[in-house]
Design a binder for these strands. Structure first.
Lengths: 185, 185
DNA sequence: GATATGCAACTGACCGGTTGGTTGGTTAGG
DNA sequence: CCTAACCAACCAACCGGTCAGTTGCATATC
């Protein structure tokens, strides 16, 4: 068995991502994470300090990946919504992660990266509206909020409705079309 | 101190609603619930059997209240969306409760009442579409999903965006207008 | 090239506190 | 006096976190 600190870190992070996505912070068990990661629990504390620290690492990694992969385009919001939809269809656990974060984290802990990206997007939307490329029916923050909700609407349905869900392509089309209709297109 | 089984039940349910809304199932502590309810932990088990049983009671009570208070109107969906918005503005904890339920409950446990109401609403929407009272751009299930998401979009924003939230009346107007635009109105 | 040295990576066993759940008995009210 | 309502005290299992000690590997030394 070769030693490799970087690999161990990765395996812990991967196992923790699964566990936290599935059970949240309070429901996650550090022993289970260590077992799945194939290492001792103490390594987890050596590398990430605490259970909360580990969650932070998991969540930060997810946010970075998400922002890099999805991007943003104030001048083509329906396509942007489609990309958000695609991302969470590919990584359903990540949406759960974001939801746990919202529920279990005190409002005080805010990720600077997210705050910055948010400000940037609001600015871009405002410009696009001034330039007449995006209708001004909604304020920038309302647009962002609505589009995010619409893109993830199928995943956030109550389990009782899940049976009635149509195929992925149909769901995607509904998301894109809904955003288009918000923009009179 | 007078004895009153019914009052004790209510107090336990009220305390449990707070606790579960705030911390979820895994994060909730039965001792805390008992303390807030002003009774002994054993009463909680006498009346509700287990922690999970107590959550079920809390969640069922919330669903009943929600369904009774909000109702549904396939022929005036924007107003319906406004009522959904109002309900969760009045009871922010209830939206958290619904989210915990979705995250922490295995897909197997489904509430018959919700399934029945859902089927009924899908039927009503289909009729309204056939009668030409609701445009047929979206399938009934897509409409229901989109409207639900839009009505709760402000509450499900990431905490990083909360600072930018406008006043309640403005948020409500955005919700109603978004639904109207989905219906070409 | 054999051996000593230092150090980061890793581990098994353990700990104190917490948690959901129980029990045997007490008390108020009819 | 009987029953339903209530409770203090208790318990076993669990959980996050720690620690003394071991192992593998790179480098220095002869």
């Amino acid at each position: 068995m070769q030693r490799d600190a970087e690999r161990t870190r990765r395996q812990i992070l991967a196992a923790a991502t699964e566990e936290f996505a599935e059970r949240g912070i309070a429901g996650a068990r550090v022993d289970r994470i260590a077992t799945v990661a194939g290492c001792n629990k103490a390594m987890l504390y050596a590398y990430y300090g605490s259970k909360d620290g580990l969650f932070d690492a998991v969540f930060t990694a997810y946010v970075e990946l998400y922002l890099a992969e999805v991007g943003f385009d104030a001048e083509d919001l329906p396509t942007y919504a489609g990309r958000v939809f695609d991302y969470f269809e590919r990584n359903p656990g990540h949406l759960r992660l974001a939801t746990w974060y919202r529920l279990e984290r005190p409002a005080s802990t805010q990720l600077d990266a997210v705050v910055a990206v948010n400000a940037e997007r609001l600015g871009a939307l405002e410009e696009a509206q001034s330039a007449g490329e995006v209708p001004a029916d909604f304020s920038p923050v309302a647009l962002l909020s609505l589009i995010q909700s619409i893109a993830t609407s199928w995943s956030t349905m109550n389990p009782e409705y899940k049976a009635a869900q149509p195929a992925r392509a149909v769901r995607r089309q509904a998301v894109v079309k809904a955003v288009e209709m918000l923009l009179h297109r």
